[in-house]
């Protein structure tokens, strides 16, 4: 009896040993990889666009946490000014701005444009992020509320204006999808409220839908297009839709964006709703954005 038990044990141990031999190193690794894949199942899409701006307006991108993005943007005069004005290069409007990532999903930005001496401030909040794996999300969606303050003198001393008349608000949803490594597109439904509209006949509330996208040419360059369509009835008379075509060059910490556009302004309210230039008439202006990122504090 005793003998039999030991023999049985012996067989069991031997069998165990054989099984262990068969499950060799590669199999064990395959099993580990499988387990890990099940654990880190969500893979978020990164780098839908190169930077936080497409051309004039926002992309769905935020800077990372504790990243400061210094932005300098210029729009020169229109090309149809001719050679005397060096095709518009003799004059320029400019916006200086700072973007900052409070968390990876929330950014804040401030800026000052020479156009109507406008200050602007905004938040950008990521609501959804495009992802694959366990959590499948086909789109990234961000919300951007912007406040703009026009500080240009009214130029009309006979009338008293309140401070609130200088304010305008923009609410933007940015719905983006990175279709492939090279192609990303986004749609930007936009609501603009102006506390003061210059004419009674003009609406205070304006609506627009933007579409934009980028096609990469190489790993570090891309062609961008951005178009804002003002909804009829929520549009200021005599203005055109803003259309811009740009070229991005990314070089490590810098992004250079060169573009042609029909608007001089760089704040949402101004370039979406108050663009006066028409492409077909040659009211095209050259401009550029420069972005440089700095890391503030330690990201851990």
């Amino acid at each position: 009896m005793y003998k039999k038990i030991i023999l049985l044990c012996w067989c069991a141990v031997l069998a165990n040993n054989l099984i262990a031999q068969q499950a060799d190193t590669t199999d064990l690794m395959a099993q580990l990889e499988k387990e890990a894949a099940a654990q880190n199942a969500i893979s978020y899409t990164i780098a839908t666009f190169k930077t936080t701006r497409l051309i004039n307006g926002h992309t769905v991108e935020n800077p990372g946490k504790n990243v400061l993005d210094v932005k300098i943007a210029h729009r020169f005069g229109t090309l149809n000014n001719g050679a005397y004005q060096l095709f518009g290069l003799d004059n320029a409007t400019m916006r200086m701005g700072l973007d900052y990532g409070i968390t990876n999903n929330l950014m804040v930005g401030i800026g000052r444009s020479t156009y109507q001496k406008t200050f602007d401030g905004f938040f950008k909040i990521k609501i959804f992020r495009q992802s694959t794996g366990k959590k499948k999300m086909p789109l990234s969606i961000s919300y951007v509320p912007t406040l703009a303050v026009r500080t240009l003198n009214w130029g009309d001393s006979s009338q008293k204006y309140q401070f609130s008349s200088r304010l305008s608000y923009t609410h933007q949803l940015i719905i983006a999808r990175k279709f492939s490594e090279a192609l990303s597109l986004q749609i930007m439904p936009t609501f603009i409220h102006r506390n003061l509209s210059p004419l009674i006949a003009e609406p205070n509330d304006l609506l627009a839908i933007g579409i934009g996208g980028r096609q990469k040419l190489t790993k570090r360059t891309s062609i961008n297009v951005e178009y804002y369509y003002m909804i009829p009835g929520y549009k200021i008379k005599g203005t055109s839709n803003s259309l811009s075509v740009g070229f991005d060059i990314e070089t490590g910490g810098h992004v250079f964006q060169l573009h042609f556009t029909n608007t001089r302004a760089m704040t949402e309210k101004n370039f979406i709703s108050e663009t006066s230039g028409k492409w077909e008439k040659g009211d095209i202006l050259f401009g550029f954005n420069i972005s440089r990122v700095f890391n503030i504090g330690k990201k851990k």
């Binding site: 064990l28 580990l32 890990a36 990243v67 890391n295 990201k299 851990k300």
Partner: peptide, 30 residues
Amino acid sequence: MSVLNAQTGELQFSLLIKGFHFKKALMEEH
């Protein structure tokens, strides 16, 4: 992930590239 087979001397490693983390977020992206 790594497996060391003490009997055969086999040694294997496997890792996800996205698992590398940098101090600078943009560097990680690039």
